[in-house]
């Protein structure tokens, strides 16, 4: 009996040992297989196809959150609503923080970095300023956004509008999602002052 038990025990241990070893080997193989995939042609081909076919769409989607927050800010200024503008300004600050530039070329990255650095500062000021100041910062922020979208593209169709009177008749631009003019620089005082400069798709 003892002998049989011992044999059984040895057998069991050997079995367990075998199973463990073989498991390890399988895992190793899988691991190597994975490595091969990530180093090899598999990933490259996905990158290629995404660059060729989805490149622009991918970039345009990068500006989506910013454009949405910007339009919210613009609408708040149209409505002479300082608090809503401040809130939208705060949202733009986070959207600028989250903006990932790594998928762009190096020159574009530098340009985007400059734009974001400048624009974020304006958004920060909009977050904590009276409405006159919010509008002054919105003027430069709008220019920054126009330049940013020139690089990234936009998923939403936008209208680039111009008010010739603002800033001592130097004029100021803004972006809108609707064709109808609603002036964010003067609000109710001069709601329809301005014209569409161009359509951006």
């Amino acid at each position: 009996m003892k002998k049989i038990n011992l044999t059984k025990g040895i057998l069991a241990i050997t079995l367990v040992a075998l199973t463990v070893t073989s498991c390890k080997e399988v895992k190793k193989e899988q691991h190597i297989d994975n490595e091969h995939h990530s180093d090899g042609s598999h990933d490259d081909s996905t990158m290629d196809s995404s660059n060729d076919m989805m490149g622009n769409d991918q970039h345009a989607s990068k500006s989506t959150a910013l454009v949405a927050n910007y339009l919210e800010l613009k609408n708040a200024l149209v409505a002479d609503d300082k608090d809503a503008a401040a809130k939208a300004g705060g949202m733009m600050v986070s959207a600028f923080d989250d903006f990932e530039t790594s998928s762009f070329g190096s020159e574009e990255q530098q340009e985007l970095k400059d734009i974001i650095e400048d624009a974020k500062e304006h958004a920060e000021h909009i977050e904590k300023s009276p409405i006159d100041h919010q509008r002054e910062h919105f003027d430069v922020l709008s220019k920054d956004m126009i330049d940013l979208i020139a690089i990234t593209g936009t998923e939403e169709k936008l209208y680039q509008d111009f008010c010739p009177m603002y800033n001592n008749n130097k004029g100021a631009q803004w972006l809108s999602a609707t064709k109808e003019i609603k002036n964010p620089y003067y609000g109710a005082k001069m709601m329809s002052c301005g014209s569409v400069q161009k359509e951006i798709n």
């Binding site: 400059d114 400048d118 500062e121 002054e136 920054d144």
Partner: peptide, 15 residues
């Protein structure tokens, strides 16, 4: 500062 930022700063200084 980048030229963009200089421009912004000068505008703010003026105002």
């Amino acid at each position: 500062y980048s030229s963009r930022r200089k421009n912004s700063k000068l505008k703010s200084i003026i105002s």
